[in-house]
């Protein structure tokens, strides 16, 4: 089976500072891969190499067997945050429709584009955002609009860079619920610092800290993480998705003013990060 994404012996450096050293990685269809590692370890650089936004100093990167500059349109990418002019006159639907911009050489979006964008917004539970100015959305709402944009493009591969970095706990749970829904039909590559939470949603973990070490999820232990991070991190086992969903339900209940008997600050994921 041909890998969707393949890195062979990739080295990359910013000037003389080598960030990635002889990295090999293969991502296959329906894979769910988490890229984890310490800050400055090269996670985002790895993602940008896959997208063809950076060129390796050595080695090759291919997407669907071709250089990423040719095939990256087939990848859906959700950045950590979009640096944009807050006064730019654009609403959420406009941003989602941008996912389909390459489908027409000339002319305006057609009915099929609008239907796909509307459906993508529904998938991320964001129909109510449709006509709201993108600049006025919260971090979590923007993140959902950007995921909708990637979905509207009709992609089979979703690459996400710290998708929950700028959102509150409740929104984080909602995003992970969404990834759980998407994992049956999409290949997911998630860059995350939140190791314990993201592990509940993937089948492989790539520990990146200048080099990349790939582990099947069942082999990830405290010692593998400590080797990657070089600190005292520990693995907290989650019971698949039930754990985070329960936590989300508790928080929703707390928002409704119902006493749950748990202190949310004691939540293991909160402690971990």
């Amino acid at each position: 089976m041909q890998p969707v994404i393949e890195l062979q012996d990739v080295c990359f450096s910013y000037d003389s500072d080598e960030v990635l050293h002889h990295v090999n990685l293969q991502v296959f269809e329906r894979d769910r891969v988490a890229i984890v590692g310490p800050n400055g370890g090269g996670k985002t650089t790895l993602l940008r190499l896959i997208l063809g936004l950076l060129k390796p100093r050595f080695g090759t990167v291919s997407v669907y067997g071709q250089p990423p500059a040719i095939t990256r349109g087939r990848l859906g990418y959700v950045p950590q945050q979009v640096q944009f002019d807050p006064q730019f006159p654009v609403n959420a639907l406009d941003v989602v429709l941008m996912g389909r911009v390459e489908r027409h050489l000339i002319g305006l979006y057609d009915r099929a584009d609008r239907a796909a964008a509307t459906q993508a917004l529904e998938q991320v539970d964001g129909t109510y955002l449709r006509n709201r100015s993108f600049a006025e959305l919260s971090g979590g709402e923007r993140q959902r609009v950007l995921i909708a944009q990637a979905l509207a493009s009709g992609t089979d591969v979703l690459l996400m860079d710290e998708p929950t970095a700028n959102v509150d706990f409740l929104m984080e749970q909602r995003l992970y619920e969404l990834f759980h829904q998407l994992e049956a039909r999409l290949t997911l590559v998630i860059v995350s610092h939140n190791v314990n939470v993201v592990m509940a949603h993937v089948n492989r973990v790539v520990c990146v800290n200048r080099t990349a070490v790939i582990h099947p999820i069942e082999e990830v232990t405290t010692s593998t993480l400590q080797a990657a991070y070089g600190d005292g991190r520990t693995v907290i086992q989650h019971d698949e998705h039930r754990h985070v969903n329960d936590a989300a339900e508790e928080l929703r209940a707390a928002h409704r003013g119902v006493h749950t008997g748990h202190d949310h600050d004691d939540h293991p994921e909160r402690r971990e990060d």
Binding site: R72, L75, Y77, F88, M98
Partner: peptide, 15 residues
């Protein structure tokens, strides 16, 4: 519109 809004986003979408 996409080029004015975000150049990198446009590039990633093949524009």
């Amino acid at each position: 519109l996409v080029v004015c809004f975000h150049e990198e986003l446009a590039r990633l979408r093949g524009v």
